[in-house]
Each structure stands twice: as C-alpha cells, then as structure tokens.
Simulated assay, not measured.
Amino acid sequence: MSIPLSILDLAPVPSGSDAGQALRNTIDLAQRAEAFGYNRYWVAEHHFTDGVASAAPAVLIGLIAAATQRIRVGSGAVQVGHQTALSIVESFGLVDAVHPGRIDLGLGRSGQRRSEAINSLAGPPPEPKPAHVVDGLLIPAPFDFSKLVASPKFGAFAALLQQPGAQSPDLAVIVEEIQALIDGSYARDGIEVHVTPGEGAKVELWILGSSAGQSATVAGERGLPFAANYHVSPATVLEAVDAYRAAFRPSAVLDKPYVLVSADVVVAPTEATAQHLASPYKLWVHSIRTGRGAIPFPTPAEAAAAPWTDDDQALVQDRLDTQFVGDPAAVAERLRVLASVTRADELLVTTITHDHSDRVRSFELLADEWFGH
C-alpha cells in the first residue's frame, strides 16, 4: 500500500498572467486535489517575487479551506522570524475556528538564517561534499546559499518584513510560545495570557527544515512531525531526517517520528511531453539563485529562446537532476525510491508548469498511478 501523497503549492504566476489568476488556479487545483485523493494541500510563504503569489499563507489557507470540504490545508511554511507567536496563533486559530480539525500549521526558520549566513562568510568555506547515489536516490553536491541570503538585497527585504529594531526570535522559543498559547498554558511574569481565537485550536503543528540544524532538532525534541526538503535542498535531506530521528522524544502528539519529504515533479502521458512542460524550470530556478526572485513561469517556447550558458546550467544542475519528470509510472517509481531511502511516512509533491491545465493533469496522472484509481 502506498504512503499518503500531499501537495505543496506556491501559487505560481505564469508569464502573461497575474497574481489574481494564479490564486484562482490554486483554489481550483485544491478542489481537484481533494477529488484526486491527496492527503493535504500546503501553501508556501514567499515575498518580493513576481512569479509566486503565496505571500500570506493564513489568508490563502482560509480561502482554500472554504472552497474544499475534507482535505487538510496548511502552510509549508509560515516564516516565524517575521511574526510573533501571538499573530501566528490568532490567524491560524481564526481559520481553525471556521474549519476545525483540518488546518496544518507548518513553521519554518527565517531571520536567523540571514545572520548565520553573514557569520559564515567570515570563515573559510566548508569542504564541498561530492554528489553520490544512495540506493538509487541522487544526493547532489550542496548549493551554497550563504552569499545569496547574506546579500544587501535580502537585507532590504528583511527590513520590510519586520518592525524597526525587531529581532527574529529563536525557533525553539517561538515554537514553545505557540504551543503554550494553543494549549492555554502561556504565562509571562506570572500573568496568564489567553487568546481568542487560537486557544484550543485543533491545528496540527509541523516543523519544516532543510538541514541537520535547529529545525530538525526542535521538531525531534518536541515530538512534532517534521517535513524535509528534497525539492529545495536535495543535498542535505538525509542529514535532516537523520538529525530529526536522533533528536526525537515521544510526546502527546507523536509516539514515534513522522517524516514528510518533498519532491519536485512534472508528470505527463509521455516522457517527451513531460520534459517539454518542465523545460522552463531551469530559468525559474536560475532567477531564484541569482537573487532576482522567482520570475513568472515561462512558456516552453520562451525557455527555448532564452540565452543560456554553461555557467547558468551549472548554477541549477542539482535542481534539474533531482526534479522527477516523466510518465506516471516512471515518476511514481522515483518517488518510491525517495520514500524508501528517506524512510518517509508521507510525500509532498510540488509541480509548476506554465499552463494550469497541464499542472492539474500532472497531479491527476500521478494520483491515478499512486493510488491505483
């Protein structure tokens, strides 16, 4: 029996379209995903990009939950460095009050990563690890995000995301505060604090992480489910899940570790068609890794006409090599390898194509293959 399959949606903006249409596409896809049999539907938090419309997860989750009936809806992930524990609990508590028991609150680090990246530039660069294959799963050489995250452009963005003088909280602290506000045990200086909506919310709390760092450790130590990024940081996915399992302590939430792993996929009836639909992906990843921010997703024709160098290819090669592109059977087999090697309890797939109908069809074909419809 196959493990559960879920969706991560960035609400991508296709070239020639706009954010409004991208969001309507997301709501349409969520309704279809529910019918296809997917377990949960998560949306990301991205800012300052022309090609991604999911800037406010709690708002978008509320819209999706209102348009669906059974599928779990959540964040992958709320960036906790830009908000207080109170604002997160109140916004997700509000949605849960209307759609109780269907909302996932996925949390990710931010803010801290920028300061850590700046500090890392002061020392010698780490020894690069070579690409290798583990039981059929490619683990590419790691991409160095430090210069990108530490750039002045990212500093300007950070200033807009926080109030003047604000500091990003430690992940362990904000997770503890969120849990205390939800379960009604929060107190400061001897004063109890209760929030409505939010206290008693039936949200499912998750931690998302890309490495064997604090996110994996906090998720394990607090006995929470953990989502690891193969689609963004494939080089470190095994380190992340191993660190989570090593740190895991049973809790009221889980008696054993629960791991979800993400993957980037494009499925079509044939390998050739899938490769054609996925061909703009390299331009899209390149825009992110050069600091421009995600561009509106090009058409295959636009991708074919764009100038491209060997250096451009090298910048994105790890993401191209770890994108699962092909017919339903081939992609499902690669996903099974990913699940086996990472010992995942659930997989989270994300797909971007220029035409919404191709994206819907990709998820439908994969679901038919995975669930045996």
Rank of each mutant, 00 (worst) to 15 (best):
E239Q: 15
L107V: 05
G108D: 02
S115M: 03
V237C: 03
A97Q: 09
Q214L: 08
I7F: 06
L29N: 04
D327W: 04
F363H: 15
G37P: 07
E45C: 05
P164N: 05
P169N: 04
V78I: 15
V325D: 02
D170N: 10
L315G: 12
Y186I: 06
I139T: 13
A201G: 13
S75W: 03
R319G: 05
I64C: 08
A305D: 14
I88K: 03
G220E: 00
A122V: 07
E34V: 02
S91H: 04
R102F: 01
A19T: 11
A67N: 07
R245H: 01
S357N: 12
G93E: 04
T322D: 08
S91E: 10
T84K: 06
A158W: 05
H47T: 06
V78D: 10
D312I: 12
E192G: 14
T353G: 09
H46N: 10
A158S: 13
E204M: 05
A306M: 08
L23A: 11
R222C: 02
L8K: 05
Q163G: 11
K147C: 11
E302H: 07
L138S: 11
V360I: 11
T309H: 12
Q21N: 11
S251H: 01
S17P: 04
D242S: 15
L29P: 02
D28Q: 14
R334I: 00
Y38G: 04
T236W: 02
L5M: 12
V133Y: 03
V360C: 15
F248P: 00
T322N: 12
A272L: 09
L365P: 02
L347V: 01
R343K: 15
A77S: 15
V13R: 05
Q214A: 09
T68R: 09
R109W: 00
I191L: 14
G123E: 14
E239K: 13
H47M: 07
A131E: 12
A56Y: 03
R72I: 07
F248T: 01
A339P: 02
G136T: 06
G62T: 08
L335P: 01
N119L: 03
F154R: 14
G20I: 03
I174M: 12
L105P: 00
R188Y: 10
R24K: 12
A180W: 03
Q275D: 09
A304N: 11
L105S: 00
Q31G: 15
E34W: 04
Q167R: 12
L283T: 03
P124I: 04
V316K: 02
P257W: 00
A141H: 07
V261Y: 02
R32Q: 14
Y230S: 09
A53Y: 02
A141Q: 15
V331W: 08
K147T: 15
L205G: 03
V59T: 15
V149Y: 03
A53R: 06
G76Y: 13
L137P: 01
A19D: 09
E192R: 15
Y244T: 00
V218N: 07
G293A: 14
L315M: 14
V331F: 13
I61F: 01
L137S: 01
E221N: 11
A235V: 02
Q79V: 14
L8S: 04
